[in-house]
Structures are given as C-alpha cells and as structure tokens.
Amino acid sequence: MADALHTSEARIVAASRVQDMVFAVLGITVLLMAMAVLATLVADLMSDGLARIDQQFLTSFPSRRPESAGILSAWVGTTLIMLVTAFLAIPLGVGAGIYLEEYAPKHWMTDVIEINVSNLAGVPSIIYGLLALGFFVYGLGMGQTILVGGMVLALLILPIVIVATREAVRSVPSGLRESAYGVGCNRWQVVWRYVLPAARPGILTGAIVGLSRAIGETAPIITIGALTFIAFLPPSPIQATAPFVNFDWLNSPFTVMPIQMFNWISRPQAGFHVNAAATGLLLLLMTLVMNGFAIFLRYHLRRSLRS
C-alpha cells in the first residue's frame, strides 16, 4: 500500500517534470523561431543588396536606370530630418516627462494628460501623417518641407521620449531630492542640477530608441506628400560667410531612405529591388546599431545603479 502510494507520487513528480521540460522546449522553440525570422530577413537583404552598396550608390541621385541610381538625396534627407526631429522631440518630451513626474499635482488634469500620452503612443503612424497633411501642409501652408517632415516624426516619437523620461526620473532615489531641497534648492534647481543628471542615461536611451523608430518611419512621410524623385540636395546648413549657419534647408523638399526604398520596391524591374534591398540593409544597420547602443546604455545604467 505504502509502496503503491510511493510509486504513484513518483509518477506524478516524473510527469510534471516532463511537462515542464516540454514547455521549456516549446518556449525556446518559439524564441528560436522569432530569431530565425530576424536572421532570415537579414540574410535575405544581404544576399540581395550587400553587393550593391558602394560609393556610387551612396553618392548618386535617383535615376531611371537602376545601375546608376543612388541614395544621396535620401540619406541627406534622413539626416536632416533626424536633426529636426531630435531638436524638437527631446526637449518637448523631456519637459513633459519631468512635469508629469516632478510637478503634476494629483488631479483630473494630470489624469487626462496621462491617458493622452498613453493613447498617443498607440496612434497609428499614418494618422500622424494625416495630421501633418491637414494641419501643417495645408492648414498652416507650410508645404512638403524638411521642417514638416521633422515635425511629424517628432510628434510621433514624443510619447516614447516622455515615457522613457518618466521612468528615468522615477528611478532617481528620493533621498537625492530630499538632500537637494535640504541645502535650499528650489524645485527647478533640484530638477536641473540633480534629478536630470541622474536620469540622463535613461532619457538618452529613450531618445535613441525613439530616433531609431523615426529613421525607419515611412507612412507619415508618404502621407504628407514627400516626393520620391529628388535629384538635388537641400541648401547646405553651413556656409562660408557669417553667420555661418543657414536655415534655408528647413524649407526644402526632400526624400528619405525608407521612402526611396518603398519607391524602388514598387517598381517592377528586379534591378530596383536590388537597390531597395541595399537601402533596407543600410536602414537596418542604422536602427540596429542605435538600438544596440541603447541596450548597452541601459545595461550599464543598471550596473551602475546596483553598485
């Protein structure tokens, strides 16, 4: 009798161990599958497009012949748009994040803002494009310029920066605040001198993740009517004569890398698909490097918090 009990218990134990094993294997399989998709995607892009990336490709304008086409105007456009986006989204997002964590009193208005930010994070990017088309391009008559492109992407990544800022600010120990107030700082001095420097790595991580998202965004830029065939560069931001900087480029038409890629995918000729793959590979490289850097930062941040 006792023996029977013993063996039945042993059987249950063995069975549950098997179940756990099976599930763990299942989990790893799913994980491997997801990674396999990523790996296949990278391999596919490489086999299609790696050979196409050369100096000619980087320094040529688009062309009707795939072999002589390039992404010069696209990568210049992407760079300039990112400048505008970073310049707008980071201060705005950090400001809003700090307000929500350090200033906001607990009442309905704060609640409204909070629901808002969370909702904005989920608004499809193409809707931002429609906003920019109806409001910036036609409502304000700004046209399809680099400035508008940068603005729409800034709005798009604003929630990412806000959320990252809030998390970073929240993780600043409250003892730091108390001692800063203790030496007589006012709220802004506490934030500026002590809270922000402590939250900087976290904020930076969020900003990088946001910008890497913006680099790959296509839909909102298409929606505002960005051209796909740009055979010139915007005016240079730097000039030889005083005041040495020039903001005419903000009002220039533009194209960006994802748009150029989309345009080439839509062409029937296989040659353009090769160009698309090469552009995609470069895009992928940029976003992966940026995200890799963000992950690295976060990892270091965690380590330095622990010690």
Partner: peptide, 20 residues
C-alpha cells in the same frame, strides 16, 4: 534580442514579405 526584432523598420518587413 526581442527588442531588436521590434526595431526593424516596417518598410524592411514589407520588402521581406513581398520579395522573399
């Protein structure tokens, strides 16, 4: 690693879906 998957631009996923 999963986050990297999320970082791939959607236009690249589109290319992958259509061409591969």
């Amino acid at each position: 690693i999963l986050e990297l998957l999320a970082a791939v631009p959607t236009v690249v996923f589109g290319y992958f879906a259509l061409i591969f």
